[in-house]
């Protein structure tokens, strides 16, 4: 059974297949599909993410989370369906979208042979920031993370938890309004994960939309809404509280198992 719970989305928004989609949604997908050969990695998914939301994208390994995110970020062309980021079609406006989003890929994406500051300088530069902006923002970021005195140390020397937070910092260095985070906390210890999520909350409070994938079920509880992906399809989507009620689970772990089994 597939219960794509999409009643928060106006019917017109989903029927709309041209690029003049409404901009009320940070991310909007309509039957978005991606095939690799005969294999369908993402299978007709519909979803709508509201601005400022923390949207959790749950699913086992191989469910299709990364493939979906890469399409939203303009890194992969869809095989069918359509999606909009800030009302911009991912098929036609990928280059414009790239300017407005931040992306943290599931692989570690900083350069280990560069210093902390050089990494920030690079990401600032590649987004076209001015030198003064780069200075200001990295000071702010490094102060927040307590890394100011290590700014000239090689990134390889940092513990993983710090590395991941630094990666998040550089993904939002150009102040995007939407952040796509692909398993940002995988392999990180629980305490560091907790700190990482505090950073996400702070961003969300400042109005940033956060689209985050994870396979840690406790993290799902922190999201405003979650969708559970099974084999390329969205099997359930709602707030954690509603999902627990509907699927009669004490926590998201139970809900997830029940959803996957059906």
């Amino acid at each position: 059974m597939i219960s794509a719970d999409i009643d928060t989305v106006p019917k017109t928004a989903l029927d709309n297949t041209d690029s003049s989609a409404p901009t009320d949604f940070a991310v909007l997908a309509n039957k978005l599909t991606r095939r690799f050969g005969n294999f369908t990695a993402v299978d007709h998914i519909d979803l709508a993410v509201k601005p400022g939301e923390i949207f959790g994208f749950l699913g086992a390994n191989g469910a299709g989370k990364t493939t979906a995110i890469r399409m939203f970020c303009g890194l992969l062309k869809p095989s069918g369906g359509e999606a909009w980021v800030h009302g911009l079609s991912i098929k036609k406006k990928a280059e414009v979208i790239k300017r407005k989003i931040g992306y943290m890929s599931q692989k570690f994406s900083l350069y280990n042979d560069l210093t902390i500051y050089e990494n920030l300088e690079f990401y600032g530069g590649i987004y076209g920031l001015k030198k003064s902006e780069i200075k200001e923002r990295s000071k702010e970021l490094l102060d927040n993370m307590g890394l100011q005195e290590y700014r000239n140390k090689l990134t390889s020397a940092l513990p993983l938890g710090f590395k991941q937070r630094l990666a998040l910092g550089s993904a939002m260095f150009h102040r995007p309004s939407i952040l796509f985070l692909d398993e940002p906390t995988s392999g990180v210890d629980p305490v560091a994960r907790r700190i990482f999520w505090e950073m996400i909350y702070e961003l969300s409070e400042n109005g940033t939309t956060v689209f985050v994938t994870t396979h840690y079920m406790d993290e799902a509880e922190y999201c405003d809404r979650v969708s559970i992906m099974v084999k390329g399809r969205i099997a359930a989507m709602d707030s954690p509280a509603e999902l627990k009620k509907k699927w009669n689970g004490a926590n998201m772990q139970e809900v997830f198992l029940k959803v996957v089994e059906t």
């Binding site: 970020c73 890194l75 992306y103 890929s105 994406s109």
Partner: peptide
């Protein structure tokens, strides 16, 4: 190989 290219491609650089 290390995945940083993916990160670069997600930026507006041509």
């Amino acid at each position: 190989e290390t995945g940083t290219m993916e990160q670069i491609l997600a930026t507006p650089i041509l």
